[in-house]
Amino acid sequence: MFGKARCKICGDTVRLVLKHLNDKHPEVMAGSGSKSRESMDKLVKKYFEEDE
Rank of each mutant, 00 (worst) to 15 (best):
M1N: 12
M1K: 05
F2D: 00
F2T: 10
G3R: 14
G3L: 11
K4F: 12
A5L: 01
R6L: 14
C7H: 02
K8G: 02
K8S: 02
K8M: 10
I9A: 05
I9T: 03
I9D: 01
G11C: 07
G11H: 07
D12L: 12
D12V: 14
T13G: 00
T13Y: 06
T13P: 08
V14K: 10
V14H: 10
V14I: 11
V14C: 13
R15H: 10
R15P: 01
L16G: 15
L16A: 11
V17D: 05
L18I: 07
K19Q: 07
K19L: 11
K19I: 10
K19C: 11
H20D: 05
L21T: 05
L21Y: 09
N22P: 10
N22G: 14
N22K: 09
D23K: 01
D23R: 06
D23I: 05
D23C: 02
K24I: 04
K24T: 11
K24Y: 05
K24F: 11
K24M: 05
K24D: 09
K24R: 12
H25Q: 06
H25K: 04
E27Y: 09
V28W: 04
M29A: 13
M29L: 15
A30W: 03
A30V: 06
A30K: 12
A30L: 14
G31P: 04
G31A: 03
G31F: 01
S32H: 15
S34Y: 11
K35Q: 12
K35M: 08
K35E: 08
R37I: 04
E38G: 14
E38C: 07
E38R: 13
S39T: 09
S39C: 12
S39A: 11
K42H: 09
K42S: 12
K42D: 06
K42L: 12
L43C: 04
V44A: 06
V44C: 06
V44D: 02
V44F: 01
K45G: 03
K45N: 02
K45M: 07
K46R: 13
K46Y: 02
Y47H: 04
Y47L: 00
F48Q: 04
E49T: 13
E49D: 07
E49L: 08
D51N: 15
E52Y: 13
E52L: 15
